[in-house]
């Protein structure tokens, strides 16, 4: 199971030089990746990679703090970096193509660090 990486478990020593985009905190990487994914043509929504009801800890934290977990899950201390995202897409472009574009965009953003990208298309609907 892919887990959200909490800032406390982030190890800077395992990252690339500071200039690399993924050298920042994982939550920041997740935020960067969210913007990257949202910019992919055909993506209409990004849903929580790990639904709250599947994560007791996440639900408890959210209930107490009122904060939402990052929409993009980034985990793994070793290479490749594991990224999981659930997206909604429109109907103008083929959903499989959009999914591949998302994976490619994530991979390109994280270069030179290798990444294993998991993309779920959970909604295919015309944009109203």
């Amino acid at each position: 199971m892919t887990e959200h990486l909490e800032p406390a478990s982030f190890s800077p020593s395992e990252t690339s030089p500071v200039a690399e985009p993924h050298a920042t905190a994982p939550s920041a990487v997740a935020e960067e990746l969210l913007r990257v994914i949202q910019a992919v043509e055909g993506v209409t929504a990004v849903y929580p990679a790990q639904p709250l009801w599947q994560s007791i800890a996440g639900a408890a934290i959210a209930a107490v703090t009122g904060e939402s977990l990052p929409l993009v899950a980034v985990s793994g201390d070793a290479d490749p970096l594991a990224v999981k995202v659930r997206i909604g897409v429109g109907t103008v472009l083929p959903a499989p193509k959009v999914a591949r574009k998302v994976a490619e965009a994530v991979r390109n953003h994280l270069l030179p660090r290798p990444a294993a990208v998991e993309v779920y298309v959970v909604k295919v609907q015309p944009v109203s």
Binding site: P96, A99, R100, E104, R107, V117, E118, V119, Y120, V121
Partner: peptide
């Protein structure tokens, strides 16, 4: 397009 990736539709 990459062996490390897994893509799905539900």
């Amino acid at each position: 397009e990459n062996p490390h990736d897994t893509l799905w539709e539900t």
